[in-house]
């Protein structure tokens, strides 16, 4: 399957606002004997930020990792149910997991730049997927990705220096730039700000809001303020179950479930 060109993506992205991008139906995850995620069904709409919240160990990260099949890497993990991306089953045997991960990018909790130069960090994805025909192409992709991640101005003079030398917030934005350099359709973010200070967090949150225009974003966070600030829709998980899912505003102002209410008002968590 070819990777859609960026222009196409932007157009189709805008056209498809509000439609489902990723759909999960009755998803269960088991780690050995442990039933970590119980019959979760969820629609993720294109060009929106969907926040997954809930107390630690509630299954929100597990669910996130189902979406690009990172759970495959965990020994003894088993996933049942159906997850589709644009209608295609992502657990289908004939689907190439490598291509899936090129379409669904991921940003991790701890900034994890490769111990290589800033340029090589961003260029790695386009290189392995053959997205650039020439070095000029590649440079263009790198620069535009860094620009979109709001990092270019800060690092343009030291692209050949190691990415590990940046500050924590810059590293995380580098990781975001690295993820969008592949032109994914969906970006998964697993508590992307938990290792950052408030100023860096604010920058990343701003960035997430800007990225929404071109990408579908799913973010796991344990900060309810963050969920309220950046997301359009919020899903609340508890003990492996999806308790409530709806517009962020509604969840935070008028939760339907007692459990949700308890959590967002800080009675437990």
């Amino acid at each position: 399957m070819p990777i859609a060109s960026e222009a196409f993506l932007q157009q189709s992205g805008r056209a498809m606002t509000g439609t489902s991008k990723v759909t999960a139906k009755d998803v269960n995850v088991y780690y050995g004997d442990k039933h970590a995620l119980k019959a979760v069904s969820l629609d993720i709409r294109a060009n929106e930020v969907t926040a997954l919240i809930g107390p630690s160990g509630c299954g929100k990260s597990t669910f996130l990792r189902c979406l690009n099949r990172m759970n495959d890497l965990i020994e003894g993990a088993r996933v049942t149910g159906l997850i589709t991306l644009d209608g295609d089953d992502i657990y289908d045997y004939s689907l190439d997991v490598v291509q899936l991960r090129a379409r669904i990018g991921m940003v991790f909790q701890k900034p994890n730049p490769f111990p290589k130069s800033i340029f090589d960090n961003v260029a790695y994805g386009p290189r392995i997927h053959g997205l650039a025909q020439s070095s000029a192409d590649l440079e263009e992709i790198v620069v535009s990705s860094l620009q979109r991640a709001g990092l270019y101005e800060e690092v343009k003079d030291r692209l050949s220096e190691p990415g590990t030398g940046l500050s924590g917030g810059q590293q995380q934005r580098l990781c975001i730039a690295r993820a969008i350099a592949v032109s994914p359709e969906v970006i998964l973010m697993d508590e992307p700000c938990s290792a950052l200070d408030p100023i860096a967090t604010a920058k990343v949150e701003e960035l997430i809001d800007e990225l929404r225009e071109n990408y579908t974003i799913v973010i796991v966070t344990h900060s309810m303020q963050q969920a309220a600030r950046v997301s359009q829709r919020t899903a609340f998980f508890h003990l492996g179950e999806l308790v409530e899912f709806g517009d962020t505003e509604q969840i935070f102002t008028n939760p339907q479930q007692k459990l949700t209410q308890g959590y967002i008002t800080g009675r437990f968590g």
Binding site: M1, P2, D96, I128, H129, G130, Q133
Partner: peptide, 10 residues
């Protein structure tokens, strides 16, 4: 064109 149709790198 640009080897876009290929599954893998050339």
């Amino acid at each position: 064109p640009k080897a876009r149709a290929l599954h893998s790198l050339p």
